[in-house]
Design a protein around this nucleic acid. Structure first.
Lengths: 205, 205
DNA sequence: TAGATTGTTAATCGATTAACAATC
DNA sequence: TAGATTGTTAATCGATTAACAATC
């Protein structure tokens, strides 16, 4: 029986990976400890060790973790050894910003397609990419086996586009539309709604 | 002793509020139930009732909740009765997108200041707002008692700007910088890093 | 009345933390 | 060796769910 790893554990791994990369690249460190990493992330050292223990033994008593090795292992665990091709749906202001975002490269992702339904935008160039007609969504995604999409369309269009993405074989969607999306089992959705995030904080103000 | 309400409960309230508004505005419904709301959000009805029970009794046996009343109560709980003035730090692509985002209005927020340190951008107009010199950050925020900031600057500048925001009285920060920010007790930070969100999903692919 | 649905309690489930033997 | 730190166990803490009396 394969042990089921909690999603909350998975969700912390990218944050560990990000901080480890920072330690290596910007501070030139070679080793670290669960205590140091936890300090920097506001997480207990016990939690970091427990999280990692789901996947193996990556450290050494007395000396902690070799950063390069742990980065490598986390990239392996998170399936980041190969670059993922990503489709961006929506060429509005936010789509524009994401198309120009430098942070995708070297962290495992590359936006290779942009779609919109606005004839004014179709054919436009965005950071080297041509905006395609959304009518060609299915054929392009299926043919290229795209598994990941970023959804940056109005709430009113989000569910319909989601259904089309899923039908075309997409199994991971990062949505900026302010709406809960219905997807079948096995399709993963992650949400980003700045207003929801702000409203969570105003409770405390 | 005031009962401490779990942050995870608080984090769901904006989602309830958003869906209730959709039910009212787009479908013209007047009443709903924890079951219906849960169905639409992929949350159990028991959890919705439990969450709401932390704050009072808002429903009626047999008939459920009056949507308008529950919306009103949630807005009260989340301190959304008055519009919050927000400062946007960073006038790059993402800052541009946020400055033009229509979703803030009517959901409790208004971007009233934009700052950048790039002389090329200072003075530029963004959706009716003038980009200010970041050197004037402290005076503008303190004088206008701005409590909320959206941080859209490079990771290398994020901690320094955060320190300045906190010193100027900001107590809620929505950060798009891919870095964990150190803030004193009482200051709230919410993060949005698209790469972290994508990496969480690639584990399952 | 009969059916529906709430708010709440208790049980279950799951996540975090503390502690420590092992060992580098 | 002495000090540091891991991986793991058990205890604690917290969140979710199931069930149901109350009642609209």
């Amino acid at each position: 029986m394969i042990e089921q790893i909690p999603d909350i554990v998975i969700s912390r791994l990218p944050v560990y990976l990000r901080e480890l990369t920072r330690l290596a690249v910007e501070e030139g460190k070679v080793n670290t400890s669960s205590h140091e990493l936890g300090q920097r992330l506001g997480i207990s050292s016990a939690q970091i060790r427990k999280d990692l223990s789901h996947f193996g033994e990556f450290g050494k008593q007395g000396t902690g973790y070799h950063i390069g090795y742990l980065i490598d292992q986390l990239r392996e665990i998170l399936n980041l050894k190969e670059e993922w091709q990503v489709a961006l749906i929506g060429a509005g202001y936010l789509g524009h910003a994401l198309a120009h975002y430098q942070g995708f490269e070297h962290r495992g992702f590359h936006i290779s397609w942009v779609f919109d339904n606005d004839p004014q935008k179709i054919g436009e160039e965005m950071n080297g990419l041509i905006v395609r007609d959304i009518a060609t969504l299915e054929s392009a995604l299926s043919k290229n086996q795209i598994k990941i999409a970023i959804l940056v369309v109005p709430a009113s269009a989000a569910q319909e586009i989601t259904d089309r993405l899923v039908a075309a074989g997409v199994t991971a969607i990062l949505s900026y539309a302010p709406i809960h999306l219905k997807v079948p089992e096995g399709v993963h959705v992650s949400y980003s709604d700045p207003v929801v995030q702000l409203q969570r904080m105003t409770f405390y103000l």
